[in-house]
Computed example of a mutant assay.
Amino acid sequence: MSSIVILSSSVRNGRKSPQVARYTEAPQPASVIIPFLKECKFSNFEGRLTLKKIDGAPMLQFAEEIKKANGVSYVIPEYNGGYPAGLQNAANHFYTQWHSNPVVNATVSTGLFGITQVITSLQFTLWKIKSWTVPAMFSVPTADKTFDESGHAIEKEATEKRAAAFIPELMWCIEANKRMN
């Protein structure tokens, strides 16, 4: 069975990314782990994991989860046209863990338009860490009105329509990646 890491990448109070991560979790044709970046307690970037001694168990556990995963789904909030510094920090700490991993992106915003801007700024980083960017994307505008606290869609039909290709395309890329390696 394949495994997917759904990374909830917001660390701010009042974040909506966990609800979107929970929504994309169930049900999936793979085992799913949802690390919340806020709980990983990453130190500021001073060098890749391979170049420094790490005392933080959450960071080492996160590295192992990414390394074992067959694919990654980023749940990314938009902050002023960009993605959170914590996600860049996580990308910088690890390098080989991201290589050739198929990656899909769920973008989250409480506004109407921020969701498209974050992908542009993240794409270059994904190329540099050698991730395989899957074209499918799940955009969640007005996330505060789209999901309840448990991650259930309030407007179920519209949300399912936007999410329809998201995980199936990731699963297709995971299977293709397995055949290539």
Score class of each variant (00 low, 15 high):
residue 1 M to D: 08
residue 5 V to G: 00
residue 5 V to Y: 00
residue 6 I to L: 06
residue 14 G to F: 02
residue 15 R to S: 15
residue 15 R to M: 10
residue 17 S to Q: 08
residue 17 S to Y: 01
residue 19 Q to V: 02
residue 20 V to K: 06
residue 22 R to V: 00
residue 23 Y to P: 03
residue 24 T to P: 03
residue 25 E to L: 01
residue 28 Q to R: 13
residue 29 P to L: 13
residue 30 A to T: 06
residue 32 V to Q: 10
residue 35 P to A: 13
residue 35 P to W: 08
residue 37 L to K: 01
residue 39 E to A: 15
residue 40 C to A: 14
residue 44 N to Q: 09
residue 44 N to I: 05
residue 47 G to C: 10
residue 51 L to S: 14
residue 54 I to F: 06
residue 55 D to G: 15
residue 58 P to Q: 15
residue 60 L to F: 00
residue 60 L to V: 04
residue 60 L to Q: 14
residue 64 E to W: 00
residue 65 E to T: 07
residue 66 I to R: 05
residue 68 K to L: 05
residue 68 K to F: 00
residue 70 N to A: 02
residue 71 G to V: 04
residue 72 V to R: 01
residue 73 S to G: 15
residue 74 Y to P: 00
residue 75 V to T: 05
residue 75 V to S: 07
residue 75 V to G: 09
residue 77 P to I: 09
residue 79 Y to P: 08
residue 82 G to V: 07
residue 84 P to K: 05
residue 88 Q to W: 01
residue 88 Q to T: 11
residue 91 A to K: 02
residue 92 N to W: 00
residue 95 Y to T: 10
residue 96 T to M: 01
residue 105 N to Q: 02
residue 105 N to Y: 00
residue 106 A to S: 15
residue 108 V to G: 13
residue 109 S to E: 07
residue 111 G to I: 08
residue 111 G to P: 07
residue 114 G to Q: 13
residue 114 G to F: 11
residue 115 I to E: 10
residue 115 I to A: 11
residue 118 V to K: 03
residue 120 T to A: 14
residue 122 L to W: 02
residue 122 L to K: 02
residue 123 Q to T: 13
residue 123 Q to R: 12
residue 124 F to T: 14
residue 126 L to V: 05
residue 128 K to E: 15
residue 131 S to D: 08
residue 132 W to L: 14
residue 132 W to C: 11
residue 133 T to E: 14
residue 135 P to Y: 04
residue 137 M to V: 13
residue 139 S to R: 05
residue 143 A to T: 07
residue 144 D to S: 15
residue 146 T to H: 04
residue 146 T to P: 04
residue 146 T to R: 12
residue 147 F to R: 10
residue 147 F to E: 12
residue 148 D to M: 08
residue 148 D to H: 08
residue 150 S to T: 09
residue 152 H to N: 15
residue 155 E to Y: 02
residue 155 E to K: 06
residue 156 K to L: 13
residue 156 K to R: 12
residue 158 A to E: 15
residue 159 T to I: 11
residue 160 E to I: 03
residue 160 E to V: 04
residue 161 K to H: 11
residue 162 R to W: 03
residue 162 R to K: 15
residue 164 A to D: 08
residue 166 F to D: 14
residue 168 P to A: 05
residue 173 C to D: 07
residue 175 E to L: 07
residue 177 N to R: 06
residue 179 R to V: 01
residue 180 M to H: 01
